[in-house]
Amino acid sequence: MVKVDVDIKVKFLHGFSHKTRIQILECIKDSEKTVSQIVDEIDGNQSNISQHLACLKGCGLIVGRQQGKYMYYSLRNQQIRELLSMFDDVLAEVQTHVASCDNHIV
């Protein structure tokens, strides 16, 4: 098993720690999209979405592909897609506990 520095792991997990970033990841889970498409789909504002895209890209969760004047964003790889699905599977089992947890600030 690969040993990963805890601080690096925390930085990686930070990419998943904001509602907008999760919405973006879910939005591009099945197909690449432009910023405008993401903004429309999650009903956000372009400046805010762009900041979160930069965070996701910096954390290595997504990649961007330039085509003409548009940048298309997608998940970095199949493992990220599987990780998002695993989050859903685990959450299905513990969502009642998570919802009632007073130790987390939303």
Rank of each mutant, 00 (worst) to 15 (best):
Met1Gly: 15
Met1Arg: 11
Val2Arg: 08
Lys3Val: 10
Lys3Tyr: 13
Val4Asn: 00
Asp5Gly: 01
Asp5Phe: 05
Asp5Ser: 10
Val6Phe: 14
Val6Met: 06
Val6Cys: 03
Asp7Met: 06
Asp7Thr: 09
Asp7Arg: 06
Ile8Gln: 14
Ile8Asp: 12
Lys9Thr: 08
Val10Gly: 10
Val10Met: 12
Val10Phe: 09
Lys11His: 09
Phe12Tyr: 13
Phe12Asp: 11
Leu13His: 07
Leu13Arg: 11
Gly15Leu: 00
Phe16Thr: 04
Ser17Gly: 10
Ser17Gln: 04
Ser17Tyr: 03
His18Val: 09
His18Tyr: 14
Lys19Ile: 14
Lys19Gly: 12
Thr20Met: 12
Arg21Pro: 12
Gln23Ile: 02
Leu25Arg: 08
Leu25Asp: 03
Cys27Trp: 05
Cys27Lys: 00
Ile28Trp: 01
Ile28Pro: 00
Ile28Met: 01
Ile28Val: 05
Asp30Met: 01
Lys33Leu: 12
Thr34Arg: 06
Val35His: 02
Val35Thr: 08
Ser36Arg: 04
Ser36Cys: 10
Gln37Tyr: 02
Gln37Ser: 06
Ile38Glu: 00
Ile38Ser: 00
Val39Arg: 03
Asp40His: 09
Ile42Tyr: 13
Asp43Glu: 10
Gly44Pro: 02
Asn45Trp: 03
Gln46Val: 11
Ser47Asp: 03
Asn48Glu: 08
Ser50Tyr: 07
Ser50Ala: 13
Leu53Pro: 01
Ala54Asp: 15
Cys55Lys: 15
Leu56Lys: 09
Leu56Ile: 13
Lys57Pro: 06
Gly58Cys: 06
Gly58Arg: 00
Cys59Lys: 15
Leu61His: 11
Leu61Phe: 11
Val63Ile: 09
Gly64Asp: 15
Arg65Glu: 11
Arg65Ile: 14
Gln67Pro: 07
Gly68Tyr: 04
Tyr70Leu: 14
Met71Val: 15
Met71Lys: 14
Met71Gly: 09
Tyr72Ala: 07
Tyr72Asn: 09
Leu75Trp: 08
Leu75Lys: 00
Arg76Lys: 13
Arg76Gly: 14
Arg76Ile: 13
Asn77Leu: 02
Asn77Cys: 12
Ile80Met: 08
Ile80Asp: 05
Leu83Cys: 07
Leu83Lys: 08
Leu84Asn: 04
Leu84Phe: 04
Phe87Gly: 00
Asp88Lys: 09
Asp89Met: 06
Val90Asp: 12
Val90Arg: 14
Val90Met: 02
Ala92His: 07
Ala92Thr: 08
Glu93Asp: 14
Val94Ile: 10
Val94His: 07
Gln95Trp: 14
His97Lys: 15
Val98Ala: 03
Ala99Gly: 03
Ala99His: 02
Ala99Ser: 15
Ala99Thr: 09
Ser100Gln: 06
Asp102Asn: 07
Asn103Leu: 11
Asn103Val: 08
His104Arg: 05
His104Ala: 11
Ile105Cys: 10
Val106His: 10
Val106Trp: 12
Val106Lys: 14
